[in-house]
């Protein structure tokens, strides 16, 4: 463990709220962004990070950090988020159709509210079939890699590759939209 981290843990354990604030301010945003990628909801992400820090402060006297403060914080956020996902009431996920007409449907009217976004829809339509389906299941149905893999009876590795591929293709196709 970093020497500086040892001193920080000791100070927080003694109730030093200035040091505690420093840790909070330094890591808050990156922890929230990470939580947001998992939970896909900004309010819940902030709740998780906030309650984690409250718990740390409340249990500060017995605080034990094995490696670095930063890895401790990221691990804690990760576990909290996974817990929350498991307890979430199961949303009714849309059935993913295997046809081109998918995007033309008003299946997800709340996603695209502007005709100007036709070119985004068009770009997604150009993705190869399996790639497009996997990308949409991740992006819009918010399924995890393991869920997508089991739905489609493929490996997680394949899911990973297809999503990477989708992002690469879309990045080129949407260069003008992204600026």
């Amino acid at each position: 463990m970093l020497h500086a981290d040892v001193e920080i843990i000791k100070a927080i354990g003694k109730g030093n709220s200035v040091v505690f604030k420093q840790v909070f301010i330094s890591h808050y945003e990156s922890l929230c962004r990470y939580a947001y990628t998992i939970l896909k909801n900004a309010e819940e992400a902030e709740d998780v990070v906030q309650s984690m820090f409250v718990k740390i402060w409340e249990k500060r006297e017995g605080l034990e950090v094995k490696h670095t403060i930063r890895s401790y914080l990221f691990k804690a956020v990760y576990h909290q988020c996974i817990n929350m996902l498991e307890h979430r009431t199961v949303k009714l996920k849309h059935q993913v159709h295997l046809t081109h007409e998918l995007l033309a449907e008003t299946q997800r009217p709340e996603t695209f509210q502007d005709e100007l976004e036709e070119n985004i829809i068009a770009a997604i339509k150009t993705l190869p079939d399996q790639c497009r389906i996997i990308f949409m299941m991740s992006r819009y149905d918010e399924l995890r890699y393991a869920e997508i893999a089991s739905h489609l009876n493929i490996s997680v590795n394949t899911v990973e590759n297809q999503i990477s591929k989708a992002l690469k293709i879309l990045r080129v196709k949407l260069k003008d939209v992204i600026e």
Partner: peptide, 16 residues
């Protein structure tokens, strides 16, 4: 690939 995993919410804490 790691960036894509991260954006999808699949990154392990060490990766994040």
């Amino acid at each position: 690939e790691l960036i894509a995993r991260y954006l999808c919410g699949e990154a392990q804490p060490e990766e994040a």
